[in-house]
Design a binder for these strands. Structure first.
Lengths: 354, 354
DNA sequence: AGACCTCAGGCAAGCGCTTTCCTGGGCAGC
DNA sequence: GCTGCCCAGGAAAGCGCTTGCCTGAGGTCT
């Protein structure tokens, strides 16, 4: 591997001059020398050692991101937003998948700290786990104490800058929507109970149902993995225990897709017999059949905002931006069977604010 | 930021000893000192500077991966395979998205080289572009000359180790399948013509149709972006020009989903009036309606194999592993209308090897 | 009891780069 | 013609870590 000294030697200059030419330093270099250096670079196919540069330079350019899983569309969208702002500001992104393992999340905080990133962004639900939360906050505090910046997406446990999707309001919207359609027997396909996202959404749903004097008994809430197969399993359990359900709420779209798959396999007509609502509005939601009614979260925007917060030197007080959720009506919901709906519905699949 | 010297000073030992304790060096350290060092580490929340370590150490642990877009399920699956093998061998993965921009791909090769990665893996279609190919090969050769390892997935332009999905054979399978079902008026929803993946699959399809005396006129092949919206656009163009088509082949599943969406919006029954076949077998293919008949590629396996090749010091001769494609029959294909099918089909949605 | 061996621990030389500070040559000014 | 200034280029000091080599204390063998 060619080094800067090799280049300098070949060009007949000092490493200092070579460095200045290569980095376009403000210090002027004679045209003649500049050319010789550039020729040497080309001839040797020289590429600077990024680690040596980082070690020698003072300022850090990279930003670290910890998500549950980038290949999950929810995080893919958020990452798109993060990426956009980062690229605009000439920052490099290091993306880490925790695969919903809190320990791995802690490890990644250390790893990113070791990589000297300028900021760390934590995306995705927090955990109901006091020990973990304390440990995480300690590590983040240590990082911030040495000048690192931290921003979180959708986690209340951290006291710094945050972008918060309004999960609870989204849950309320679902309750209102289904109540209005006449649904009274509602089952919930929920993600792991240990995730705050799950409980927030559930709390909102409960609140709006309670406002109408309805409660959500425990046996009508089934927890499973936050993915398609979890949705299949939870829906099956729900239906087996309670065949009379007229609506199923999945606490994210992946689970909703699983729910639809199970209902189809059992030949349950959606929405004629059972309505299904999801959460997140991932891109695929419009392409399943029936197209999924869901609660939209501005995922790309959330990523963009979080990155802006992280890169902006920042006010003294922590900034918290709450982004609203809205209902997107498509074809997977309809009036509860045997009940006159409160409000007539169009058959189309257009979206509208909730 | 605490440094190793800080730790050493606080523990009352030399940096050398501290380093040995922290890295679990083979050199023995007295229990007493070891404890003091570890305590100092904890108290200072010390995390080693990864760049300094990489600079000081000789061996490289990270592996670089360049894909078109990880959030595309095709690459997400491949990445899963890469990740698995990398993790097993204690390697860290740096993932770069080129977003199908050849220039960005070149930049990333340099970037990864600068990061001193042990290997670079290029996943995703190559380009029909001689200049780019030459440039890329030059850069890769320079990297390999300094001990770097390179493996590619699905690119013939590189002469080293490679994992090749059998795109051409897959194309042939599609042709055979549709011919057998009686389809004679077939349209193709294709990705960008500049991608070798597109042309390979198309070539295979043409070959099998030619074997039956059929040709594929240019106006029945529409090129667009390799995603859902590209599928919508190309299918619309296809149908407008030729309403009598009985089958549509999409050269990947994302486009196929777009095709299904467009057909639904025009109320064209699938597969009764038009059959649709995809390519890749992404996970979502089974959850759209009708479930998508497609050609399965062992994506995870491809990633795993590529990583194995890249990490295995390697034979002198380049190793090329060709992985087979197989048809997965689901519900989006059926006999051509007005034609008695060559072979009767079951109504179920089970998958079976082709 | 003396010579020798063993082994824990420290010294210091890098890894490849950036950047401050210094040097020495060329020029203008007096 | 001499002093002083300006400026391009170089020397060298790190950045934070690893590791080969050396040292000196303790133990062993005769």
């Amino acid at each position: 591997m060619a080094t800067l000294s090799d280049v300098a030697r070949r060009a007949g200059v000092s490493p200092a001059t070579a460095s200045r030419v290569i980095n376009g330093s403000s210090k002027p270099v004679t045209e003649d020398l500049r050319e010789r250096v550039l020729r040497a670079v080309a001839e040797l196919q020289y590429v600077p050692n990024a680690h040596a540069q980082l070690l020698a330079r003072s300022h850090r350019m990279a930003v670290g991101v910890i998500v549950h899983d980038v290949s999950d569309p929810y995080f893919a969208e958020i990452t798109r937003g993060l990426q956009r702002v980062a690229t605009d500001q000439g920052r490099l992104l290091t993306i880490c998948n925790s695969y919903r393992d809190p320990d791995r999340e802690l490890e990644y905080v250390e790893l990113l700290r070791g990589q000297q990133v300028a900021a760390i962004i934590l995306a995705g639900s927090g955990y109901h786990d006091a020990t973990f939360t304390r440990l995480l906050n300690e590590k983040l505090a240590a990082y911030e104490a040495t000048g690192g910046r931290v921003a979180v997406i959708g986690r209340h446990e951290h006291s710094g800058d945050a972008v918060m999707p309004d999960n609870r309001a989204g849950g309320r919207l679902i309750g209102a929507e289904l109540y209005e359609l006449g649904h009274r027997a509602i089952g919930v396909v929920a993600g792991p109970a240990v995730l705050t996202t799950t409980t927030d959404r559930l709390t909102g749903l409960r609140e709006s149902l309670a406002a109408h004097g309805l409660s959500l008994p425990e046996h009508r809430v089934r927890h499973a993995e936050f993915d398609r197969d979890g949705g299949v399993a939870a829906t099956a359990a729900l239906l087996d225990a309670d065949p009379g359900l007229t609506a199923i709420v999945a606490l994210n779209d992946s689970m909703a897709i699983g729910a639809l798959a199970l209902l189809r396999s059992r030949s349950v007509p959606v929405p004629r017999q059972v309505s299904v609502m999801g959460f997140d509005d991932m891109p695929i939601a419009r392409d399943v059949t029936p197209a999924l009614t869901t609660v939209r979260l501005p995922l790309v925007e959330m990523g963009a905002r979080a990155m802006s917060l992280a890169l902006d030197p920042g006010a003294a007080a922590p900034r918290v931006e709450v982004l609203p959720a809205e209902v997107v009506r498509r074809d997977s919901t309809g009036p509860a069977p045997e009940v006159v709906p409160v409000r007539p519905r169009a058959a189309g699949s257009g979206a509208s604010a909730g």
